[in-house]
Design a protein around this nucleic acid. Structure first.
Lengths: 348, 348
DNA sequence: CTGAAAGCGCTTACAG
DNA sequence: CTGAAAGCGCTTACAG
């Protein structure tokens, strides 16, 4: 009895030698079996109210928390998902990550984070992923066919975030980049724009390709001039491409269609700072993504806002469903972006 | 023999019923003991070259990877560290995270990510952290004394990133916010500025407090006017504080000292867009952090650049040291920021 | 250098 | 509802 009082006074020193309490310690303390302790921490397990109280008190006294590692080993479910995200893809990165965390937290699932410097790191990262018996993978990174198959062979559910695999049966949530860009460009055409510079992202980005194609397809036949500038989603390259176009371009554009907001901001800054161009009267500029900075006073970009909240929710749901039922067929969900009209371009 | 050939042709189907190969499977296949397999995957363990080859071939054939969960359970080292990071603290967030990932990866340590919406979530998050037997914690979030003690009691090494605990014996790496701000302000004074508006961050942020104090302490006695504006590190509040100051302020400031870059950008945009103020001739604006966007053409902020790379490296090293030697005393490392002179303020 | 054996802390049939 | 027991896949003394 005395010992118990002491233990209660110092929850975490209740265990001698500073070790963490195990389910056996709790069982001994509560006077029940170890199985009973285990059941008490398993939602829905059959356990009497009396036993539950005893166990809960003992657990509180000893500062017991089930060891998730041991649980993962025996149950085959780690309650960990791997999130693979390519660095600097866009400024939405922090938001996506924190939304993912919130959604997964609600289901008591943790995130093992893997950031990739470039797409070629996927192999290296996947090797680490296998070791941790993750229950699933969210990938905001480009996989090869072989990498996708490796996940299938291991029966690890995989959901892509904003990556496009037209040829493969993989699950993904994606903004409708093509349609969003098409709609944006159409608004520019309607407003009378005819000479377009379309600034694309990295050549190996399927997302950039979709956006670029959405623009170019719509423009063909309607615009008098179209030129494609090869960007890389970065601010600084956007600045220099804008300069090239303005100084050495084959025609004077009346619209810059940038396939992400960052490039649009670079373009805008360059036009105003170095060419004294009036935006949007002389030249219209549009972006894509709907990042926070695009709404700032100085930019106020006309852009396509990705419905992040819904996309993340969808990705999480799709993954959870497939963790529970691995036989579910792959599914691709496409979300329309919302056009936000700022002052960098007028749409009609 | 036939069976082995088949297995080699289809590494991952080598295991029947689609289960992952274990060390026992590899041992059987290689004709050695399970202990031998284990040793083969433990760096530095004594194992003959012959055995190693046999095991490695068998492992490759069966697609074997040690199960990190099981390893963690028996060895008491999960090779996982928890990273706690308060959302939207600043735009450095993605960079810090990806640098942390890179450094930890090199030591074969994974990151369990926890993002916090607000500081009050720390308790909730720590409860999850305990369950995962993490080897250590990096915290870019404010802890209470009780939360710090909880880590100590559990003997989990803890290193703070850019959080200040003058009163507590905790390990931390921190930019020298106070000194950085002081130096910045001194440059403004030397250049002849005398009427200062100092825009602080959230009241509960120790970092903001340090920066603000660095500025105010230096200004007292030297400036003719000082006013402190209570911001929250956000762009939009910075805009409206700037408006208030310009329209209803008790004096016309010739310098805005913003305690982070985002607010400086809001301030700058507001001054130029709404007040046609010439920066820096009429009014100087300085920020703090050295985020990427601060270098953009339109901003080109004079600011204090935090040495992220070195700070992250230090945090990782300090944590690793303490994982290996928990008895190491706490240590606080303070890094000087680099003043970057942009065109938003001239310093002398 | 090698193998047999114990054990990390749980979950989960199984029998009562 | 409850407890005894097996077992998840490893590491690590221990004896050879």
């Amino acid at each position: 009895m005395d010992k118990q009082m002491t233990a209660k006074a110092h929850p975490l020193t209740a265990m001698p030698d500073g070790k963490r309490a195990t389910s056996y310690d709790v069982a001994r303390f509560a006077g029940v079996s170890q199985s009973a302790v285990s059941r008490c921490f398993k939602p829905g397990a059959s356990i009497s109210a009396k036993t539950r109280v005893k166990v809960e008190q003992a657990a509180a006294t000893l500062g017991y928390q089930p060891n998730a590692i041991a649980r993962g080993l025996i149950s085959g479910r780690s309650n960990i998902v791997a999130v693979l995200i390519t660095e600097l893809t866009n400024l939405n990165y922090p938001q996506v990550l924190s939304k993912l965390h919130r959604k997964f937290s609600e289901c008591d699932i943790r995130i093992l984070l893997f950031t990739l410097d470039n797409e070629s790191d996927v192999d290296t990262v996947l090797d680490k992923v296998w070791q941790y018996q993750v229950d699933g993978i969210i990938a905001a990174a480009q996989f090869t066919e072989a990498q996708i198959n490796a996940c299938k062979e291991r029966a690890i559910p995989l959901v892509f975030y904003n990556r496009i695999y037209p040829q493969s049966t993989v699950s993904s949530v994606c903004c409708d980049h093509r349609e969003g860009e098409r709609a944006l460009v159409e608004g520019l055409l309607n407003q009378g724009r005819r000479a377009f510079a379309v600034m694309s992202g990295p050549v190996d980005s399927a997302v950039s390709a979709a956006r670029t194609q959405g623009a170019v397809d719509r423009l063909k036949g309607s615009a008098t001039h179209i030129v494609e500038l090869e960007g890389d989603y970065s601010y600084w390259l956007a600045c220099s491409l804008t300069r090239q176009m303005m100084t050495h371009g084959e025609f004077k554009p009346d619209a810059f269609v940038c396939t992400n907001d960052i490039m649009a901001m670079g373009c805008l800054d360059t036009l105003r700072t170095e060419y004294q161009v009036a935006v949007p009267s002389d030249i219209a500029v549009v972006g894509f993504d709907g990042v926070e900075a695009a709404t700032w006073l100085n930019y106020d970009l006309t852009t396509v806002v990705q419905p992040l909240e819904r996309m993340v929710q969808a990705a999480v749901n799709m993954l959870l469903e497939r963790i529970d039922a691995p036989e579910l067929p792959a599914e691709k969900r496409l979300f329309s972006g919302d056009i936000r009209q700022g002052s960098s371009a007028v749409l009609l």
